[in-house]
């Protein structure tokens, strides 16, 4: 579904990604692991067209490497930014409305679905996004992107700083997303969650992919974990 080949990305003069290759299949949950600063978030942003990039990005058989972010989104790629970047001045409902694209036909998700999955959001539908708690904001960010009915959703650090109960809720949502036939590319710091829900994992180091495997391969390969993941 998504096939990335020899992806390079730049912030000004610094060369952040130096030839990244990976793929995500239909209905698959794939995790991108690695320490801070190895280029996981940049990889997602580069696919979205949010940073300067070079290389091939094929999505549903179409080359999207030259498209602008809004065009990439219209191809069916969803992006959930880190830092829970909700629109603070708008209400929960308005945030969700903005997740939908112009002239979008009904898709997999309705606002009612979101409210059923997260009753807290229904209770706070007319509250400004800026006053929600961290966990509520995270749910809102994910739901906002889902409202755009993506076929693949890229989620950046969704569980960072969340209470364990909320983390469980978010992990449950990922399974629901997959059940509706949506692929997930997950950037996750918590190894336990990534191993629990992913079908395949990639480990990044120094702007490249340094390891690829199933959760079992990661569990069994202590040397790799020590070199590329553990702090």
């Amino acid at each position: 579904m998504l096939e990335v080949r020899d992806l390079h990305a730049f912030y000004g003069k610094s060369h952040i990604l130096q030839g990244v290759d990976f793929r995500v299949g239909k209905g698959e949950i794939v995790s991108l692991l690695g320490r801070n600063g190895v280029g996981r978030s940049t990889t997602i942003k580069a696919i979205m067209g949010d940073v300067e990039r070079r290389g091939s990005i094929q999505f549903k058989g179409r080359e999207i490497g030259g498209l602008k972010p809004h065009q990439v989104a219209h191809c069916g790629l969803g992006y959930v930014p880190e830092n829970r970047d909700i629109f603070p001045g708008l209400t929960v409902r308005e945030n969700l409305i903005l997740g939908m694209k112009s002239n979008q036909p009904g898709g997999r998700w309705s606002m009612e679905d979101m409210f059923t999955l997260f009753p807290r959001l229904r209770e706070r539908a007319d509250t400004a996004g800026g006053v929600l708690s961290g966990g509520e904001q995270q749910m809102l960010t994910i739901c906002r992107t889902l409202m755009g009915d993506p076929d693949l959703v890229m989620i950046d650090e969704p569980t960072e700083g969340l209470a364990p109960k909320i983390v469980e809720l978010v992990a449950g949502l990922f399974k629901e997303i997959r059940n509706r036939g949506v692929s997930i590319l997950l950037v996750e710091q918590k190894l336990a969650i990534a191993l629990d829900i992913s079908e395949r994992l990639y480990v990044m180091g120094h702007g490249r992919i340094v390891f690829e495997g199933a959760p079992r391969d990661v569990r069994e390969n202590a040397a790799m974990r020590k070199e590329w993941l553990e702090v």
Partner: peptide, 13 residues
Amino acid sequence: THPNIVGTLGHNV
């Protein structure tokens, strides 16, 4: 406040 995010949601900023 968030032009980039609005773009990634599919709006032509």
